[in-house]
């Protein structure tokens, strides 16, 4: 009981830091992780081949360029291992929900902000999103897992959702 309270306090204090990521069953970065393991997890998640993208290392440089120009919390939010990113039909980013804002223990409660009934993000999530970012620019830092090619921006009537996972 005492250890549960301690972990809960750590989580609250940690905010968007990574110090307790492993405790919540989110993949901390494993330098020995193989593509076989990643693909196995992708299958468990039910990700279809044509929806499976990979983020490049150089994306971190893009995030680092924002350091000092926006609050630290916003930079740290963009490094979170689980994120939802919503873009308008035209491709402009609308909001980012990182795992650290979701809450819940021992499991993250994504339904706190509406899943699976709706997909409505709190105002704070909109603050993370730089309205100048577009999905087309973000896709420049990604490739398709199946063939390594750059993903194409496809038309979507209502919008685009990118689900960051590790």
């Amino acid at each position: 009981m005492r250890s549960s309270i301690l972990i809960l306090c750590l989580f609250i204090l940690a905010g968007c830091n990574r110090m307790v990521v492993g405790v919540f069953g989110i993949h901390p970065y494993d330098h020995n992780v193989t593509w076989e393991k990643k693909d196995k997890l992708a299958r468990r998640m039910g990700i279809k081949q044509h929806d499976y993208l990979v983020l490049h290392h150089r994306y971190a440089r893009r995030v680092e360029e924002r350091r000092g120009k926006e609050p630290d919390k916003h930079v740290q939010a963009k490094y979170q291992p689980l994120q939802l990113r919503w873009y308008s039909p035209g491709g402009r980013i609308q909001w980012i929900v990182p795992n650290c804002d979701v809450g819940g223990f021992p499991n993250l409660r994504w339904d706190h902000f509406g899943l699976p009934d709706t997909l409505i993000a709190p105002l704070s999530s909109r603050a993370y999103a730089d309205s100048a970012w577009t999905i087309t620019e973000d896709l420049l830092y990604m490739s398709e897992r199946k063939n390594g090619l750059p993903p194409t921006h496809e038309v979507a009537e209502k919008g685009h959702l990118l689900v960051y996972w590790t």
């Binding site: 983020l55 291992p81 685009h160 689900v163």
Partner: peptide
């Protein structure tokens, strides 16, 4: 999370393009 997204997509997903991005490289960057 993926299960939540799939349930949501089944209810509301028409016209919405969902893609999953493996972000392990982001954690190296952190």
């Amino acid at each position: 999370l993926a299960r939540n997204i799939e349930r949501w997509r089944k209810r509301h997903g028409a016209g919405i393009h969902v893609r999953y991005v493996n972000a392990d490289s982001l954690l190296i960057g952190f």
